[in-house]
Amino acid sequence: MVAISVDGLTRTFGDVTAVDDLSFTVDDGEIFGLLGPNGAGKSTLINVLVTLLRPTAGTATVDGHDVESETAAVRDSLGIVFQEPALDEELTGAENLAFHARLYGMDRRERTERIDEILDLVGLADERDDPVGTYSGGMKRRLEIGRGLLHEPAVLFLDEPTVGLDARTRRDTWEYIQRMNREAGVTIVLTTHYIEEAEHLCDRVAVVDDGEIAAIDTPAALTASLGGDVVTLAVEGSTGALTDRLDEQSWVTEYTRTDEGVTVTVERGEARIADLVRLADDAGVTITSVDLRRPNLETVFLSLTGATIEERETGDAERPVATEAER
């Protein structure tokens, strides 16, 4: 069964195309990750799927309901935890849940039952009558995740579920998400710009960059597709003599020339560094630095988009600073 189906989905804001002609499906019971830097269009995609934004073009269904023509059915079948907390801090945890339950049309009996269940599930039964303003960041997150599940949705969306949480709380939150997925059988779609989060949590990951999906597969298949470790050699002068020699080596899976030198994909990179240095020496090429990266989703992102997630984000951050300076 398909939980989410997206076909040719596009959303623009004026001249900016935030989501560009996306197509993919998410199966029932999956934990599906959208991995990419801030500003890649992940949140816009989620907001279209949860009916807060209308698609500019294309279609999408959640639990079989069209997000544009069957808004009410879509809203009934999804839960969402937004990137920014969306709790009433003056109400207690139980009151926030009761508010939610009423908006989703749950009668009194169902409401009290489910609220007790959820508070137990997210471990907030003892704090149920405390104002949410007194909760820690991790407790608020848990309450929101619980609230997202209160009306038993088919799909739970989590927009950057662990941003702003410390390392420990992040791990706890991962555990909760996995438990919810297992115990409530709910399909989970999450966005993240944390590599470890995507690797640790997700059954499948879509690598999102600049409003497009660069690749989509299991974390293991994505890293395996790289064919080994990535050794980045920065060299002085021309790389021609070095790449000629690389062509002759059977153990080189793949190489690409970059501005600074060459990126070589090999198996067991740590054992091949010496060989690479010797080759460069023989070719009369001076190496200025060597960098070895194990294949993980970070290197997948790098090889797909030509930059790391961090570079993409700081790049975005630097632009406005530059315009400040120009003024």
Partner: peptide
């Protein structure tokens, strides 16, 4: 401003 409006707007009402 506190984000609570989204919780209301995404509900099926």
């Amino acid at each position: 401003e506190v984000g609570f409006l989204k919780e209301i707007l995404v509900a099926p009402i």
